[in-house]
Computed example of a mutant assay.
Amino acid sequence: MSDALKTAQNRLSAVASTLTGGFFGSTPQFPAFDDLPKVAGEPQGCIWGFFDQDGERDECGTLNLLTPAVVQAAAREIHSGEHVQLDWPLHNVQFPGFGRKEFHQKKIDLQPSLNFKAMDDEVYINTQSGSQWDSLKHFAHQATGKYYNGLTHEEATQSDTNGIHNWCERGGIVGRGVLVDWLRWYESKNGSAPSAVSRHEITVEDLEETLKWQGTTTKPGDILIIRSGYVRWHNTASELERKSGTQENGIAIGLQGSERSVRWLYSHHFAAVAGDTVAFEAWPPKLDEGFCLHEWLLVQWGTPIGEMWDLEKLSKLCEQKNRWTFFLTSAPLHIQGGIGSPPGAIAVF
């Protein structure tokens, strides 16, 4: 790590250490975006070092916002006990994109070998081919080759640093989920929504209008979830449409990658974000403009990104209850150095 980076991280850690109760006692008050100490070689808005503790480099990013107090408050979202799992069936992506291998399950009859009637199964999954979390070592800043908190690409390939096991060891992901049902809002206003396999950009203004329409407010430490319609499209598409949309073109609806989006996301201080589309942000990103949300969320802030979550039943239950906030629990696969994982996510009302 360079001396300049160490200096910047020490300054951010010093800011953090002045906060009443620290990160694990209360929600920190972040500096304004433009007031964050400059990290050498990184754009304004980088928070490397902000969550470091006792000289140890942080590997959990904004999941540190899920303090016991935040989780206790989130538990008050539970009223009826109804619950919905948000993982898409693993076999659902019939034609994984980006050259990824499809899901495979092998069912094993144990009777011939063990002489009692029983079964096992073995599964193959590419953790990026269905409902997933992106870890903090999944996507680097493409110009610098660095991941969250200054981890280099070479270091990432040779270590477990920034792996998903860190999330599991801190107790998984538990907090208040907030569904921004953009699709339902958009269709109520316009009749029909843009194609999920077009590069339609959902704007911050859209999100704000949807939240207002729902009567929903967000809090620091929330887990933001955006419904864009990708899963609904895939559920009803023909085999040819699925192959074209998921494997041959690699284009998908999502949140706009822009300075406005970056500043809005920073100012809301979400613990994590997720959506039902391929990449959360409109894909492919415009890397040359400097506002690829993967680079900001995963790299600059350490904010996990959930993708291709099944939000259809959740959307219906939220509409039925006229409430778009809920208790959310997620148990990723406990794999040392894990790069992606099915979320194991459940919304509880």
Rank of each mutant, 00 (worst) to 15 (best):
F349M: 14
D3V: 14
S192T: 07
L328S: 10
K101N: 12
I164Y: 02
L298A: 10
N115T: 08
Q300W: 02
P343K: 06
W167G: 06
A237M: 13
I305F: 13
F326N: 09
S26P: 09
V39K: 03
A8T: 07
S261K: 00
Q142K: 15
E281K: 03
K146F: 00
E82S: 13
P342H: 04
H200T: 09
S244N: 15
L12K: 02
D160Y: 03
S238A: 06
S195M: 05
Q256K: 07
G41Y: 10
E281Q: 15
D310Y: 03
T18N: 13
P304C: 02
N162C: 02
T161W: 02
H153Q: 08
V70D: 08
G215Q: 09
G245V: 07
L311N: 12
T27A: 03
A193D: 04
K212W: 04
A274S: 13
F326R: 02
D310G: 03
V299G: 14
Q44P: 01
T127W: 06
T236H: 15
A156R: 15
P96W: 11
G45R: 01
I125N: 02
W233V: 01
D160R: 11
N10T: 06
S113D: 14
T203Q: 10
W324R: 03
E295A: 09
Q53D: 01
T27K: 08
P342F: 12
G99C: 12
S258I: 05
T203Y: 01
A282M: 12
A74E: 06
L12N: 05
Q44E: 04
I78Q: 00
A118L: 07
G177P: 13
S198M: 09
G221L: 05
G172T: 04
L211C: 08
Q53M: 09
A196F: 08
F50V: 14
T203P: 10
A143S: 14
A73S: 14
V123G: 00
S267V: 04
P342S: 14
V123R: 12
W296T: 11
W185S: 04
W185E: 02
R199V: 09
K107W: 15
G221P: 03
F98M: 12
E295C: 11
S159K: 05
L240W: 00
L66T: 02
A272D: 06
E122G: 10
W264E: 10
H83I: 00
H200E: 07
Q111G: 08
W324F: 08
D120M: 13
L36V: 10
G163T: 04
S2V: 00
E239G: 10
V231R: 14
N190S: 06
W48H: 06
V15R: 02
L293S: 07
A237G: 04
N10F: 04
I108Q: 08
G49C: 06
H153K: 15
G254H: 08
T216M: 02
G177F: 09
L328W: 01
G177D: 05
N92S: 14
E201P: 01
Q142I: 06
S17R: 13
L114T: 10
F23N: 14
S159I: 06
S330L: 02
T7Y: 05
T67D: 09
L36Q: 09
Q94T: 12
H104F: 12
E77C: 13
L183P: 01
V39W: 03
N115D: 10
A272Y: 07
P68N: 04
S341D: 03
Q336N: 05
